[in-house]
Design a protein around this nucleic acid. Structure first.
Lengths: 336, 336
DNA sequence: CTGTTAGCGCTTTCAC
DNA sequence: GTGAAAGCGCTAACAG
């Protein structure tokens, strides 16, 4: 039924080994033979059996991609870019969604190893570093994207979160805001920690005290936004600006703003983190610290491709600079 | 290095065949042997080689998933649901992005066959029906989702687009709108055609003429929205409501509305199609005809699971009913 | 430059 | 119930 290499060899009147070589375009020089074999193979509709090949060569031409979810705009971009570019290079990508859950992630990695992926691009949870290191040890290159694993010598492509949060906070400060609410990720994540640090640095540089009640850290989820925004906005001396450095929570914040009938930026200035196409066409358009998702994705692919071609693990961290994009959701206020 | 079945067999002091059976939990009855083998395997850290198994059994435990893009909220949901549920069933999903391009899609299908996927859930372009049929012929179940392929006997899980567009249009009509601009997909797509039909039917039932200048069909892309909205809004007698039944173009429409400084719903009523989390928290919140992406995704998985378990191709079309969700972007106007 | 040969690790008849 | 043995389709020595 399916046509095998043997059929091709027979039809082309060469040995099975020659057929294999011809199709692989290897050290073989005889153009005539090669051309002939290729032609015959095409005529027969031959397609090489990926399993037989993988069983022999131990490479699958499959790569793994793990993200927390597909709601986050950065992860959407990552998934699109990785799949499109790797496909063009002859790799297929196995997509997995970890929900940022250590145990699910553990299973995912195990399964990916079972499927002998040739490489992995992962937005890691942070708790399964040993497993990732074991993959590297087994010669499966791993590139961490967006998040990294503390203490593991893994190549990581990250955003310039500290600088980004600093720039965002400074922007708000320059506009005259003095009480700036921060909604951020948990401090057990790279981005949560760094963005918080950037916020604090900007405040300190401005000689302002850090008011812990103005800082709300939570999971990367919409609910975090509603809880945090409500807490912040219900304070006795509520902030005049909200810096939402927790992308998933943006939706929740928008909801609270809407429910409270707040007018942006008159009643409240809003600055988000990680751009999304929707932010630009909100009314008003929402200013944002863009973390460069597409650039990170491309860099991650570049690194993986390098590693796949044999380059050793640099163990290095790459950073893509953040950019403040001013739109219409932040207004200047009288400093008091 | 890697521990194989043979190692397990040796360590458990049984034949390799017995080991295989024990692990597979097959017709073997001797519980003792089985338990022992399983224990030994676990102790050794044995993991079955998927390629060797696939080479032998011709099933890969891999399924393909093809979507046009990951910007469309429905496709995000589809991808999330399919990957999460199939993973739980022990399948991995190979994600591919076709960009709605027939040629790319052709290659994707070919590659998926090369990787011997056990099944496929596809948002088809429509032009590669023969290939899909060939897959079915090769015993690879194919489930079309969101879109179908004209004239091919493939199971398809679709939205109730005609009824949805009818309900949406009727809603606008009931609100008193008489000139309703429609932005829709091309008529060579199921959804484009059906939504247009629903729109027309509602108009006809209301005894209103169909003004072709009020209908803008285009690709599923943001640009379509800007071109179409500009065309519609620049007309001598512009529509008082826009029914954007082309999800990808919503972004473009929002942009035009924003650029023109139009106030929603005072200057213009807006009704979108296919819900997105962002629509709810726009200001104003945008009314929408929700096509039930999650329900479609789940149904598609259900169907695939059935087919995978041996159920024959029903060749049937399944429809998930649409639902009108009224929010704040449509207002009543004086009928004239 | 090309053919012969030996498996990759597993499942699955077929005997016992 | 369990073992022996035959490959699945391919690649990669190793000869020639």
């Amino acid at each position: 039924m399916t046509v095998t290499l043997r059929d091709v060899a027979r039809a082309a009147d060469v040995s099975i080994a020659t057929a294999s070589r011809a199709l692989a375009g290897s050290s073989l020089t005889n153009h005539a033979t090669q051309k002939h074999v290729i032609q015959v193979a095409a005529a027969l509709g031959y397609r090489t059996n990926t399993f037989a090949r993988a069983l022999k060569t131990k490479r699958s031409r499959l790569i793994g991609l793990t993200v927390h979810n597909l709601e986050n705009a950065s992860f959407q971009v990552l998934a699109s870019v990785v799949q499109t570019r790797m496909q063009a290079l002859g790799y297929q990508v196995i997509l997995s969604i970890s929900a940022d859950d250590p145990e699910q992630e553990r299973n995912i990695f195990k399964t990916l190893v079972d499927h002998s992926v040739d490489g992995l691009i992962a937005v890691p949870n942070g708790a399964n570093g040993a497993q990732l290191l074991a993959m590297e040890h087994a010669d499966i290159p791993v590139i961490c994207a967006v998040r990294r694993v503390e203490g593991a010598t893994l190549e990581s492509v990250l955003a310039g979160d500290l600088d980004g949060a600093y720039a965002g906070t400074k922007h708000l400060l320059d506009l005259g805001h003095r009480r700036i609410g921060l909604i951020v990720g948990m401090s057990d994540t790279t981005s949560g920690k760094e963005r918080l640090a950037g916020y604090k640095r900007a405040l300190q540089e401005a000689g302002l005290p850090i008011d812990p009640t103005l800082i709300q850290a939570g999971r990367y989820a919409p609910e975090t936004g509603v809880v945090a925004a409500n807490a912040l906005l219900s304070m006795p001396g509520p902030p005049s600006a909200l810096f939402v450095a927790n992308h998933e929570s943006s939706l929740g914040v928008l909801r609270v703003v809407s429910e409270r009938g707040l007018s942006i930026p008159d009643d409240l200035s809003l600055l988000f983190y990680e751009d999304s196409p929707w932010f630009e066409w909100q009314r008003p358009a929402i200013s944002v610290v863009d973390s460069g998702a597409a650039e990170m994705a491309n860099l991650a692919v570049d690194r993986l491709v390098q590693r796949l071609s044999g380059v050793a693990n640099s163990g290095r961290e790459y950073r893509v600079g953040s950019r403040l994009i001013q739109r219409a959701s932040c207004r200047a206020v009288e400093a008091h």
